[in-house]
């Protein structure tokens, strides 16, 4: 099927979504996502950051779709024409979605373990405004203990439903879900249940923000001070293909390997994730591919000064204060 996204034509198999087609073209035209995860069925459609304008439904029926559609849940049609980054309305709408996602987010990035690999942080940086127009107290939730390994910090949650889908699709018995509704909706377990199963740690990997974090890694290090390496082991429960986050010889954290979109490639079991924290447990394969724009790769650059100049240019364009010239 031929589909045109931002003026670039691509041939994709039937059943491909607009988002997947855009990702095949490349990151420049791919819409940002928060709730979509390529390895989880029926994920996506909730956060609305990936909305695009369909200016031609298909070759057979060329009428445009009246509203912006969620690209992650809309399948392409033959001859479909999609506008993403070239449509001002869409960029404006996306800014609106990001603003709404942020109004109740605590912005406690300086103390949040997710900082540096947080999708909302990236999204706020690329699409958000420098200041907020929200003047009311932000929503807060009581912390709930959901088990030995995973910390639930509901205040940071953006309701992507990915952790719910992980429990549905990787385990037999889901004990957590969404309670209440509207802006009082929260992820929780049913009457102080704890999540105890072999794959429960994957909720950490799929959480796009810092709502679900690794208790064994809590406050140990900022992620950009650790070095990611690909490693593997013979595991009976999972593929054993993991990413180790090392500081010197010490393994601080184990996660699943993630693709360029920040989505786990293969889910791993709790034993690999939480119990094997020695290099002797692993066969190291080599350094992990991390995009150079990611903050995680900043310590591995030699030309740091050039990077600083670049970052400052971007910040000026966004209207941020120059931290080097404090009043």
């Amino acid at each position: 099927m031929k589909v045109t996204i931002d003026g670039i034509e691509i041939d994709v198999p039937k059943g491909t979504t607009i988002l997947e087609a855009a990702r095949m073209i490349g990151p420049d035209v791919a819409p940002p996502t928060m709730c979509y995860h390529s390895k989880l069925k029926t994920s996506g459609g909730y956060c609305r950051t990936c909305i695009v304008k369909v200016t031609q439904g298909s070759a057979a029926n060329p009428t445009p779709m009246p509203k912006p559609v969620a690209s992650c849940r809309t399948e392409v049609m033959e001859g479909m024409v999609v506008e993403n980054t070239i449509n001002k309305e869409i960029l404006e709408a996306r800014k609106g979605v990001v603003e709404l996602l942020l109004i109740n987010h605590p912005l406690d990035c300086p103390v949040c373990d997710q900082a540096g690999e947080c999708h909302l942080q990236d999204l706020g940086y690329s699409h958000g405004a420098a200041t907020t127009r929200y003047e009311f107290p932000r929503r807060e939730f009581e912390r709930i203990d959901i088990g030995k390994y995973v910390q639930l910090h509901m205040t940071r949650c953006i309701m992507c439903f990915r952790c719910v889908k992980v429990a549905d699709q990787l385990t037999d018995n889901r004990v957590h879900g969404v309670m209440h509704r509207g802006d009082a909706a929260e992820i929780s377990t049913y009457i102080e249940n704890v999540i105890e199963n072999e794959m429960s740690g994957n909720v950490i990997d799929v959480c796009p923000v810092g709502a679900l974090t690794d208790k064994t890694f809590r406050f140990k290090s900022r992620v950009w001070f650790t070095k990611p390496v690909e490693a593997s082991c013979d595991c009976k429960k999972c593929s054993g293909k993991v990413r180790l986050w090392m500081k010197g010889e010490e393994v601080l954290r184990v996660t699943a390997r993630k693709d360029q979109w920040g989505e786990a490639i293969e889910f791993i079991c709790n034993e690999c994730r939480f119990e094997k924290k020695n290099t002797a447990d692993w066969k190291i394969e080599g350094p992990s591919p991390i995009h150079k724009s990611s903050v995680i790769s900043q310590n591995h650059y030699t030309n740091l000064n050039e990077l600083k100049v670049q970052v400052m240019k971007q910040q000026k364009a966004l209207g941020f204060m120059d931290i080097n010239k404090r009043p």
Binding site: G45, Y46, C47, R48, T49, G96, V97, L100, L101, I103, N104, I158, M159, F161, V178, H180, R181, G182, D183, A184, A185
Partner: peptide, 11 residues
């Protein structure tokens, strides 16, 4: 009455 599923309406 918002169900809280998608962000624009929830927030």
């Amino acid at each position: 009455e918002s169900c809280g599923q998608c962000s624009p309406c929830r927030e």
